[in-house]
């Protein structure tokens, strides 16, 4: 079984936010309005995490594309009372909107605060142009990045229909495709030949809140100073 992971090279990343837009469009995310923004209720599965430092009178801002870390030991899945969120066989932390009761326990349990709740019936400006592979979420459920799981499904289905193995680059999440500088690399971490596996062992590699024991599958590569 593959274990999908991602490497984000902060040296290459220009924080252009193309990935943010690609993600939102691919997954039919509501664009949000001014009230949502005021209440901090905008839903972006992938967003830019600003980390500001002030050292010796110099202010420095690092902008980091941040999405669900697809932990190997995800704290959110343990606390769900109805198994709406769980670790699926592909190593993706899944969320089933139709099962979710909206208790928001998983969102609280997530140390990255990167799961989202639909506070209202989400507006859908996409109408018939919405991605048919992804449902429009309902009012009162939690949602999160699924590593564009529908793309994996499509790739698997096509491969099986044509009776062959799934190709290496056949499955790529929308954010990876959209990245103009190829800062995001995606693939199977367990496959030692893959570029992801190689990069995730780079000396520049670090992971967020690894000390909590969540074992995230998204690796970041530090900027070269």
């Amino acid at each position: 079984m593959p274990k999908f992971g991602m490497v984000i090279d902060l040296e290459k990343c220009t924080a252009c936010q193309a990935c943010v837009v690609a993600c939102a469009v691919e997954n039919n995310l509501p664009p949000g309005n001014i009230n949502d923004a005021q209440m901090n209720r905008i839903i972006r599965w992938l967003k830019i995490l600003p980390i500001s430092e002030a050292k010796g009178g110099i202010f420095k801002m690092t902008l980091i594309p941040f999405t669900c870390q697809q932990c190997s030991r995800p704290p959110c899945t343990y606390v769900c009372p109805v198994s709406a969120t769980y670790k699926n066989p592909d190593g993706i932390v899944a969320q089933v909107y139709w099962r979710c009761i909206g208790c928001r326990y998983c969102v609280n349990a997530c140390p990255y605060t990167i799961k989202f709740f639909n506070w209202y019936e989400p507006e859908n400006p996409y109408k018939e142009n919405a991605n048919p592979d992804v449902s429009i979420r309902e009012n009162g459920v939690t949602e999160k990045c699924l590593f564009c799981h529908h793309r994996l499904q499509r790739a698997k289905e096509a491969a099986k229909y044509e009776n062959r193995e799934i190709g290496v680059d056949e499955y790529q999440p929308a954010c990876v495709e959209a990245c103009p500088t190829k800062a995001i690399v995606f693939g199977d971490i367990e496959d030692a030949q893959s570029k992801v596996a190689e990069l995730s062992h780079s000396p520049r590699a670090f992971r967020f809140l690894e000390e909590l024991g969540t074992a995230p599958n998204i690796t970041y590569l530090k900027e070269i100073k």
């Binding site: 066989p89 592909d90 899944a94 089933v96 992804v134 449902s135 699924l146 529908h150």
Partner: peptide, 10 residues
Amino acid sequence: VVTDCLMCHR
């Protein structure tokens, strides 16, 4: 065959 929820629920 697969019984992963995510396969049919989107």
